[in-house]
Design a protein around this nucleic acid. Structure first.
Lengths: 109, 109
DNA sequence: TTTATTTATTGCAATATTACGATGATTAAA
DNA sequence: TTTAATCATCGTAATATTGCAATAAATAAA
């Protein structure tokens, strides 16, 4: 049905999935990488840097903003985006807690 | 159009997104957590453990298998699943390389 | 062989995602 | 005030994802 049954999972599992999902598209990965690279915040440069239409970039930026991973500041006719350091750290803690496991070396079954 | 323009991104960015995407659903998070918890591999228990229909679980298992993160071994009428340790480690390396950044403390713009 | 058990596959309905053109809103510049 | 520039939003088309009932496939048990 295209709709995720979030009710049957723990908050923790839903939180992990929510953060992972936002990285599940290369455009959002590229946006974040560019924001990390260009210390001073960027905005419409992302449209040129990445090869997608302006409304598409804007849509991806909104998803990142909704999770709090980036912030946008209006600067005249432009909008400057940057990583939110606290949120980035908090997100890392959630994902690392899930990812940082050692798979047992024993053979399967 | 619902279709991702993978061509315009680097292999690295696509790889990061591909791995992150598979964790972007709580059912797959739950499956992996259960496989980590129950050392000895499980199969249809996942259907009971998680509250989704058998075909749905089977579909999620297939996605994990396609990325190589889990393996399935036929045992009579059952199929035993387990984490692939090498693939798990390789996946971690890819995601950590992306996630493990320090956001600059400087203010936005 | 027949029946049960277990998992994969197929087909489908409902919803979500991706992408973009058109347009609106806001502000700077002329 | 008018025009240009920049970004967000709306509307829409195409595709993807999620979930399940029905069914097939494979093997164990009777």
């Amino acid at each position: 049905m295209g709709i995720t049954k979030s009710e049957i999972f723990t908050d923790r599992q839903n939180r992990i999935a929510m953060f992972a999902k936002v990285f599940g598209h290369p455009a959002r990965v590229a946006i974040l990488e560019h924001l990390f690279k260009i210390q001073t915040c960027v905005c419409g440069d992302l449209v040129e840097e990445i090869g997608l239409a302006q409304p598409t970039i804007s849509q991806h930026l909104r998803e990142l903003k909704q999770l709090g991973l980036i912030r946008g500041t209006i600067e005249g006719t432009r909008v400057c985006y940057c990583i939110d350091p606290e949120k980035w750290t908090a997100m890392k803690a959630v994902l690392y807690d899930f990812l940082d496991r050692e798979a047992p070396g024993t053979e399967c079954c």
